[in-house]
Design a binder for these strands. Structure first.
Lengths: 227, 227
DNA sequence: CGGTATCCCCCGCGATACTG
DNA sequence: CAGTATCGCGGGGGATACCG
């Protein structure tokens, strides 16, 4: 059986959002991802086939809409119903941040997701739009493949890559995944971790001083936990 | 794998409310059920073993608290965190009523759930507290076992039973499950269904006239659907 | 009343590979 | 880039029976 056999609106809604990954797909769409592969980056543990299934199911539920671009790509977006649902998903996140915060479990630490999130919230306006800025992030607790990440800010766009783009590095952040995650989640602060020696910065003084501003933070970082 | 491998608060919350039946257990608790068997009545398709599992899981998530009565019974209640979560569940219901309303599917029609809901929302203050009132509901589309339901209002308490309690019947409602469900959900009105002949009332004139008031309605009945 | 215990099925989901 | 196809398994959960 799939449904709950209840006419109650809560049950009907639960049939939609209760499916595994549904809520997170909605979160990703609300956060601005609109292509299949962008969604995948925000949901690295979700297999493409299941993502496809979920998108179809959300589409038939009237939550997600789909547009085919003239060039052939496909764009997903939240419908009106989907946006209303997304606002509830954000509230759920606020609740989660207040009440369901575990100390960051090892399983939940993931440099790729963290970098993807950071690349989305980085405040581009702190950088010269006429120039290319390259920020290198080094995770000291990771081996070669996931150790170095490049953020390339250029023409108002931010790209994140795992391969050296070849450009001169303007700024470097050296730390471990747990520390940067904690800072990004608002559980710690940049200043504190620098003082403790858990984060090292290298580059122009101005960028160092402003990092608390230009490196964004998680949507919920300012929500006060309840316990 | 059970979790989502993400530190995002939405993911952490989704790990809790994403479990099958969790949302509905929270709804039932928020609606006032506090004992194991009361929860079962509101969730007839949920097996006792799974209800037990869910209650434990919600308890360890800090959403549900448990008290053992001196007499030996057990009472469940929402914690502070649970109540905050419940308010999101209600919003989800509002969303569901606006956007996820299907025309009442046959699978979702259930006389026992409907009667349980009605017994919870019936406005006792319309009845003489000094007297016993017995309301007989007859579902013409059901055979013997689930056809007749008695609502007994006495001393400010409402009981619902499937067996003739033996008292004199004060009022009778004759209809089918779909019609009464539609009225209770706000999709139709008592007056309209009486006019159509889908509902027949028998009893004192005053009770007939006031039925729109004393027979309660679903929490979401007044929410305007979006489509 | 207030739950456990057990059994077993089935299908959701994860993994991997592959195509237009 | 944007998905489909296929396969196999694990365990969630439904059913039922049973205890305190």
């Amino acid at each position: 059986m799939k449904g709950y056999g209840q006419f109650c609106p809560v049950a009907k809604a639960a049939e939609i959002v209760g499916e595994r990954w549904s809520i997170l797909v909605i979160r990703e769409l609300a956060a601005g991802s609109d292509s299949f592969n962008a969604l995948r980056k925000g949901l690295p543990l979700l297999s493409p086939s299941l993502l496809s299934t979920r998108l179809k199911s959300l589409e038939s539920a009237g939550v997600v809409g789909k547009t085919t671009l003239p060039r052939g790509g496909t764009r997903y977006r939240l419908t009106k119903a989907g946006e209303e649902l997304a606002s509830i998903v954000w509230e759920l996140g606020t609740w989660g941040h207040r009440w369901a915060r575990s100390d960051l479990s090892e399983d939940d630490l993931d440099p790729s997701m963290l970098m993807w999130d950071i690349h989305r919230t980085l405040r581009k306006e702190y950088f010269d739009p006429e120039q290319r800025t390259v920020i290198l992030v080094e995770f000291t607790d990771y081996a070669s493949r996931l150790r170095y990440w490049w953020l390339v800010i250029e023409k108002g766009e931010v790209d994140v890559c795992l391969k050296d783009p070849g450009h001169e590095v303007s700024f470097q952040i050296t730390t471990d995944v747990r520390t940067l995650t904690a800072v990004w989640m608002g559980d710690s602060t940049m200043a504190r971790e620098i003082r403790r020696g858990s984060i090292t910065l290298a580059g122009p003084r101005q960028l160092k001083e402003d990092i608390g501003k230009w490196l964004g933070s998680n949507f919920y970082a300012s929500v006060k936990p309840a316990r």
